[in-house]
């Protein structure tokens, strides 16, 4: 488990198999994501239970339940922790703002309130031939519910009620691993209740989702979109340049679709790919559109050299420095953000 934090823990893995396949794989684990004072109960811990069932040839079903218990008060680590943290701001997560009243502090200045949290993620997923090794067509989908509660010092609790859906269709249309048409869609809920000038949590509820990005660097990356700029490229070490870095859409929710068409002119050696992607907030405000192309050479097993290019049009992102970033107006980026990326990937083991 990679959370980009000081996470440490223990997990048990197991499986039940027969002579046809692994029928069930599971993981049970507990991790301390943030350990502040060693003797203090001011940590963030994560408990996970994952199960993957393979009921029949080419089918797999998954169920996951994760519970994050955050006692850090939002003060864990160097950048803070949780949905009020600078981590959320840096990672494109939902940065929520809770201020103590100036009267309560006695200083005449509003300061950030401490926020603890219990967050639950329940998800189910299903796939049919998801790795395209059982035929040319593959499908997969996932549904997630993000529930929980934020405990704000001297203020009413805030309930978290978010959801996310993701689906993908893949078709290997001719010879070669890269000769693939992939269509993917993602939708996550947002919260626009404070868009009139208040905060998203003024109504005592937050209906967007909170991701692991609020508790560690790039803990929740959407990795299969094939874009460079609109969403973070999972192959790039620096992922901070994406227009949308977190599937919460910085609290606004996300509607995204990506389409990529690949072709191997030399099967399994040279791959070309064209990609188009579009993203909008859950309420339909356009965030940006990317078009891109890639050329990848696979001269050796597990060794790739590639050249990628992409341009984004109409990009607008959240102003994370606003008083209430999750509801502040979207800010327009330079007219045509573009990127050219050369990559070399060599998997050694």
């Amino acid at each position: 488990m990679i959370w980009g934090s000081e996470a440490a823990g223990v997990a048990a893995y197991g499986r039940i198999e027969n002579s046809a396949r692994d029928l069930l794989r599971y993981r049970l684990g507990g991790f301390t994501l943030i350990e502040d004072g060693v003797a203090l109960a001011d940590d963030a811990t994560l408990w996970v239970a994952d199960a993957e069932l393979r009921p029949a040839y080419a089918w797999d079903l998954g169920a996951h339940a994760w519970w994050l218990h955050d006692n850090t008060g939002g003060n864990g680590g160097s950048f803070g922790s949780g949905p009020t943290s600078q981590l959320s701001q840096l990672q494109g997560g939902p940065r929520l703002v809770f201020l103590n009243s100036s009267a309560s502090t006695g200083t005449g200045t509003a300061t950030a309130a401490e926020v603890d949290a219990d967050l639950l993620w329940f998800s189910v997923d299903a796939g049919w031939n998801r790795d395209l090794d059982r035929g040319p067509l593959g499908l997969r989908g996932m549904a997630l519910a993000n529930l929980g509660r934020l405990y704000v010092t001297d203020q009413p609790d805030v309930d978290v009620r978010g959801w996310l859906l993701n689906g993908e269709l893949r078709w290997r249309w001719t010879r070669g691993r890269g000769s693939e048409l992939a269509l993917q869609g993602l939708a996550s809920s947002g919260d626009s209740s404070g868009s009139g000038g208040g905060s998203a949590t003024d109504d005592g509820r937050y209906t967007g989702i909170v991701t692991g990005n609020s508790y560690g660097i790039v803990g929740a990356v959407w990795a299969t979109h094939n874009t460079l700029l609109l969403f973070p490229d999972p192959d790039a070490i620096n992922r901070q340049v994406a227009v949308v870095s977190d599937v919460s859409g910085a609290g606004r929710g996300l509607l995204a679709a990506t389409l990529s068409l690949g072709f191997d002119p030399i099967p399994n050696r040279l791959t070309t790919r064209l990609t188009a992607a579009q993203a909008a907030t859950a309420s339909g405000q356009a965030i940006g559109t990317e078009t891109g192309a890639a050329l990848t050479w696979h001269p050796l097993p597990l060794f790739d050299v590639g050249l990628h290019g992409a341009v984004v049009t109409g990009a607008r992102v959240a102003d994370m420095t606003a008083t209430s970033p999750a509801t502040a107006p979207l800010t327009t980026l330079p007219a045509y953000p573009w990127a050219v990326l050369a990559h070399l990937q060599w998997v050694l083991f």
Partner: peptide, 18 residues
């Protein structure tokens, strides 16, 4: 393509390991 997909999804591969 859609027909092929539906056909593949509905097809149930025989099992021989018993």
């Amino acid at each position: 393509m859609i027909a092929a997909l539906l056909s593949s999804l509905m097809a149930c591969a025989p099992r021989y390991n018993h």
